[in-house]
Design a binder for these strands. Structure first.
Lengths: 252, 252
DNA sequence: TGTCGGCCTTGATCCGTGTCAATCTAGAAT
DNA sequence: ATTCTAGATTGACACGGATCAAGGCCGACA
């Protein structure tokens, strides 16, 4: 199945090594060295099952480059996506290996794995690392709730708009998925239409219609199924029903 | 608005004190004593804003009894619920006070607050507590994703069924919301119809129809708007499209 | 005890979306 | 170059849910 994919969802390369990993950048050099020592790289082809649901994993993972899909297989056999792990995301259950969702590579993905025991041990004696893991988890939690806001949108176009804006925002941090050519803003869709449909709680057919409706209205332009240009960002914001970026001042 | 509520959503009383708090139960006595020392009780009436969105709070909160609503106010003024905090839930951003959602009491709720600085300091020198907080956060994260599964259900009846089962499951831990009289299982709905509708991503009218449809089919019985009996749990499971409880063996 | 004002419920109608089915497209393999 | 195949798209149609509007219920307050 992975042999017959469009070549589009490949992502551009970025720097390697933990030094360039934003999540760990602030850590002291000796901690970075230790992480490098206990960690190992792993390359995952699209479709590879990284973690199975209900599995007790013995490692903590970090996405250095690519996309992982978190999903649950329903009793009727359908797979439902509950989230994406993208560049700079940490996954795995510290102190408790049991996963509740399967994790699968969506595109060619480089991850870094740390043996759970060694990672926990390092965590115990490194307050900075521990603090980082906890903060990362809190951020993930809020992100998951933002996702719920997007999913709660009644119309598919609204959910799609929210997703596109989410991509723009998350890319603002890592400069991935985005291509700016002049005043033209192109986003890379990291998953297939079918996956995106499941992610947004709908079907491929309905999603396709929604995408093309946005294109007809001149809000986006479909370059390829995996790449579209944002022509009218404000229209997306209106459709999504949410404010775009966090209000700058936030003064009381 | 809070003065004209039905009296139903009041919840039964439970034991007080940190000793009976399941989250902290496993901690050493001296840590409990310390927590008791720095913490203080607070009682919140329905509708009380505990934390405002974008607010930098100086405390970590723990729900000892009751329900808090996490919500976001949309640009058009509507409030959208992204989650509920129930008995035994911890909230607040350790090491980083900025909240992204407002938190409001849904019913009369007792919370316990710990000054952020003191809590963090205790966290730093108490690995058990820290581990507990991190695990709690990981669980919350997975719960949020379970929520996404419920919300992804196409039919309202399915989302409602998932919510009812969620209530049953979460009550299994704390024995709240549930009343068992003989072979009759009654669940307490902790929020108003309107709130529940928003929580499930729909409108009060549609939700009302879905509830009464389940009642007509003999799957549930509506005792009051805030209390319903589960007559056919398996039917709820089927409707929700998910397996009910985690498979007991989970053997490979 | 009577009035008031929420919330909950119900009815009617229209639009969006799920579903089934067929066709198109673009890589990949030969 | 040709064939093959999975994914993407389009069409037709029925159904569920959103919406607008109205009525019922119950607790709160005077």
């Amino acid at each position: 199945m992975s042999s017959n994919r469009p070549s589009d969802p490949q992502l551009p390369a970025t720097g390697r090594g933990l030094r360039s990993a934003p999540l760990f950048a602030a850590l002291p050099v000796e901690v970075l060295r230790e992480l490098r020592r206990i960690g190992s790289r792993r390359s995952c082809s699209p479709g590879l099952l990284v973690v199975d649901a209900q599995e007790d994993t013995d490692f903590i993972g970090y996405v250095s480059r690519g996309i992982l899909r978190m999903q649950k297989t329903m009793p009727d056999g359908r797979q439902h996506i509950v989230g994406l792990l993208m560049d700079n995301d940490l996954f795995g259950r510290v102190f408790d290996g049991r996963h509740r969702f399967a994790i699968e590579a969506a595109v060619q993905t480089d991850i870094r794995t740390f043996p759970r025991g060694a990672f926990e041990e390092l965590l115990m004696r490194t307050p900075e690392l521990e603090r980082l893991v906890l903060l990362n988890c809190l951020d993930e939690l809020d992100s998951a709730r933002e996702w719920m806001l997007i999913l709660a949108n009644h119309r598919i176009a609204g959910r799609l708009a929210g997703f596109l804006l989410l991509l723009c925002r998350s890319s603002a941090k890592t400069a991935r998925f985005l291509t700016v050519i002049g005043d033209r803003l192109e986003v890379q869709i990291p998953v297939s239409r079918t996956d995106l449909a499941h992610l947004l709680g709908t079907r491929p057919e309905s999603l396709s219609r929604a995408v093309h409706a946005l294109a007809r209205d001149g809000i986006i332009e479909i370059v390829t199924p995996y790449r579209m240009a944002i022509l009218d960002r404000q229209a997306l914001v209106d459709l999504s029903g949410a404010e775009d970026i966090v209000p700058p001042p936030a003064a009381s």
